[in-house]
Each structure stands twice: as C-alpha cells, then as structure tokens.
C-alpha cells in the first residue's frame, strides 16, 4: 500500500459492500476494505497499488468519488474485488484479468475493453464499445449500452439488461452477447462465430448476420448466462442471431454486400 497517499483500512460489515461473492465472508463478519478516494489521490496511485498486489491476492477495494475518471482499475491481474462508487470514465476495468469490478454508476467508453477473464458489472448504463475485443470473462450491464457494444468481441460473455446501440457485435469473432431489450441498426455486421441473443426488437441486421434456430443447447447456455448475470428473463423469449458464413471468403459476386 506504500504508493497510496490516503489509503484507509476500514472494518466494514460485508453487507454494506454490496458483495455478491458469497465466499468472501460469512454474513455478519467483517473484512478489511481498502478505500481510495479519487478526490484526494490519483488513479495512478490506485492502479499502481492494485498492480503491486501479490499473486492470488483477493483483497477488497472501494473507490470513492470516481467522478468520471478514466482508466480506473485498468490492467488488473489479481482476483480482487473493486467497488467503484459512482460514474467511471473511459476504459474502466480495461483488459481485466481475474478481478471483479462493480461500477455503481454509469461507465464511459470501452468499459472492460479487451477483458481476458473475471467479471465486470455496471449497475447503470454503459457508453460506446462496451466489452470491445474482450476475450473472456463476464460483463454485465444492468441498464442500456450504447453503440458498438461487443464490437470485435473474441470470447467474452456480455449481458445487457436494456438496449444496445447500432453496430453492436460488429465483426464479433467469439463469445455470447445477450440483449434483454432492443438492438439498434446493423446488429452483428460481418460477424464471425459469436452468438447473439436478443429479447426485444432488432432495428436491422448487419451484413451476413441472420436469425437462427434456438436449439436446446442455446436455451441452456442462455439460461446459464442470465443466471450468472442475476436476471430472471425467460430464455424462450429470445431470438438467436449469428453468422450466415457467406462472406467468410471474398468472392466478387458478394461485392454488393459490403
């Protein structure tokens, strides 16, 4: 903690931390929480301290007054839990590995971009490019996500409680995107092997993206994703979308599709 100018170790009941990790401590017990106030210390100090934690460290952190600061909790590589008490700026939890990051507010552009593993939960709305290029882990957005949600996703799972904007899942390569509301224009344009599940209306599908049959295995994986996101939507109300695989190899006859 040496890099922190104002760390505060507080004894707080777990119930006040809004924790969904039941393994952290039994109800009523206390855990140490490191508090970092971004009005009195910098995001550099916060990230340096989080990066300096020993391997396997599972400590708990609270970030106060984020006030839209960029790159909060970026580049984490330990199974820590970070609670951000307010709106986060760009690239919050960018490239996350192993950590659980809870954002109690809105998230700016590129939340959990290129996440490799772990869990990021936005208890609010997310801006553009949420989960962009992410390879793994679970991104949950309780509210709406803006344009390009899941753009170029490479294996991440994303569950959005509300709507997603245009060009979501553009060139999506792998992973699952679940949209419990509506999807904007050009959903899944030039999609590869990602699977998309949308409960509401899709404004339009992008090139090579088509509606597909919902087979039992898809219902099963969707059920599991909704459960992991803490949602009770009916999986049977969703439609699956994916690649028609007609544009995988360039052919001159398809030129008008681009």
């Amino acid at each position: 903690m040496g890099a922190l100018s104002t760390p505060v170790i507080e004894d707080a009941p777990t119930s006040t931390i809004n924790d969904d990790d039941a393994g952290a401590a039994a109800a009523g017990s206390t855990v140490d929480v490191v508090v970092h106030d971004l009005r009195t210390a910098t995001v550099r100090e916060l990230n340096a301290a989080l990066h300096a934690l020993p391997e396997g460290d599972s400590s708990r952190w609270r970030v106060l007054n984020p006030d839209g600061t960029h790159s909060i909790a970026a580049g984490l590589d330990r199974p820590v839990t970070v609670e951000i008490e307010g709106p986060a700026g760009y690239y919050c939890a960018g490239m996350n590995q192993h950590a659980t990051v809870e954002i109690h507010g809105s998230a700016g552009v590129g939340v959990a971009e290129n996440m490799m593993s772990g869990r990021v939960h936005v208890h609010g709305d997310a801006s553009q490019s949420a989960g962009a290029t992410a390879h793994g882990g679970l991104l949950v957005i309780d509210g709406n996500a803006s344009a390009r949600c899941g753009i170029s996703m490479k294996g991440v799972d994303i569950v959005v409680g509300g709507n997603v904007g245009h060009m979501s899942a553009f060139m999506a390569q792998a992973g699952r995107l679940v949209v419990c509301g509506d999807a904007g224009d050009a959903l899944g344009d030039s999609i590869y092997e990602a699977r998309l599940y949308v409960k509401g209306r899709v404004a339009s599908l992008g090139a090579d993206c088509v509606a597909k049959e919902m087979r039992p295995e898809h219902l099963a994986e969707l059920t599991e994703l909704l459960r992991a996101a803490g949602r009770d939507d009916d999986p049977a109300a969703f439609t699956r979308y994916g690649s028609a695989r007609t544009l995988y190899n360039f052919h001159v006859d398809n030129a008008s599709a681009y």
Partner: peptide
Amino acid sequence: HPDWTGPDDLAIKIGELREITDW
C-alpha cells in the same frame, strides 16, 4: 480502432495503456 475515435479519444487510450503498463 473499435474503442476510440479521433485524437481526443486517443489521448485517453494512451493514458489507459500507460496505466496498464505502469508508465
């Protein structure tokens, strides 16, 4: 790039890369 547009965003992106690699 999928998650930034224009030089103002690039400044923030570079900031993120610096944060991840501890400057």
